[in-house]
């Protein structure tokens, strides 16, 4: 079985994003970018499945600007076998990404596609589910545990209130939640080796997919600022404040 892992280059999760003064978006100039944390978990899971002898090849794919190559090299350094970059400088929405990935899936015939549950920039949480719909495959979102057995995959999903376990026929789509695993760090020798691994560059046009956005962003603003609070000296003062609010009275 082959596993396909889509990865996205996003603002590093430790950076506090700044809204541009003209309200057109978030300022990404000179900001540290990294692989989306949920995608690192997806790469890690794919590698563990391969290391368990249940997959032969792990292919990383990204849709984005030329610099998304760095994100793919990170995936290769972690242990992915090869990579595909679908290069574009346009904003690509989840629906368009899903359509591009569906074309890649048709060429590559993976048994499993592992995606992050959401990207921490647009916070959409859509691409995996859309891809599953376009391919007509089963989906297991928010995966907490994944086990591949023959031509099926059993996934425990994190749902509100607890866990739900489902079994999917392969090929299937799985999206990762935070607690699925702890991603490995790429070692220096592996980073060097990753530079020699194959990385194909394509364009959306190669796949005949229209990536025109369906949503127009009219403006981006700062969230409302909370007014400054007070600090109380001791527990008695806090109890007083709570009672004023009618809490615990």
């Amino acid at each position: 079985m082959k596993i396909l892992v889509p990865v996205k280059r996003v603002i590093d999760y430790n950076v506090k994003p700044r809204v541009k003064a003209d309200g057109t978006g978030v300022d990404l100039a000179n900001v540290k970018m990294s692989m989306n944390p949920f995608d690192e978990i997806a790469v890690e899971e794919a590698l563990r499945i391969k290391e368990a002898g249940k997959a032969e090849e792990v292919v990383a794919v990204s849709v984005g600007p030329a610099k998304a190559q760095e994100t793919l090299r990170t995936a290769l350094a972690m242990g992915a076998d090869r990579a595909i970059l679908i290069e574009t400088d346009e904003t690509v929405e989840p629906l368009a990404v899903a359509k591009l990935l569906a074309k890649v899936a048709a060429e590559e015939n993976p048994g499993l596609i592992l995606l992050g549950k959401q990207a921490i920039d647009d916070d959409s949480n859509q691409t995996g589910q859309m891809l599953a719909a376009l391919l007509g495959w089963g989906q297991a979102t928010f995966a907490n545990t994944v086990s591949v057995e023959g031509d099926s995959v059993t996934v425990a999903r994190e749902i509100d209130g607890g866990l739900q376990t489902v079994k999917l026929n392969t090929p299937a789509i799985v999206t990762t939640d935070l607690r699925l695993n702890e991603p490995r760090y790429a070692s220096l020798p592996n980073i060097m080796k990753a530079k020699k691994k194959p990385l194909d560059t394509k364009t959306p046009g190669d796949y005949g997919v229209d990536i025109a956005p369906r949503l127009t962003t009219l403006k981006v603003t700062e969230p409302p600022v909370r007014s400054a609070g007070i600090k109380v000296a001791d527990v008695d003062a806090l109890v007083g404040k709570l009672k004023e609010m009618g809490v615990g009275a």
Binding site: E93, P94, L95, A98, D123, S124, N125, Q126, T127, G128, Q129, M130, L131, A132, A133, L134, Q139, T141, F142, R157, E158, I159, D160, P213, R214, L215
Partner: peptide, 23 residues
């Protein structure tokens, strides 16, 4: 925008060929 809604709605959106607006 619960785990149920997030699981189902994008699958519906793709079947209808529309972009979902999340949350």
């Amino acid at each position: 925008a619960t785990t149920t809604g997030k699981n189902i709605a994008p699958r519906v959106a793709a079947l209808l060929d529309v972009m979902q607006i999340s949350d």
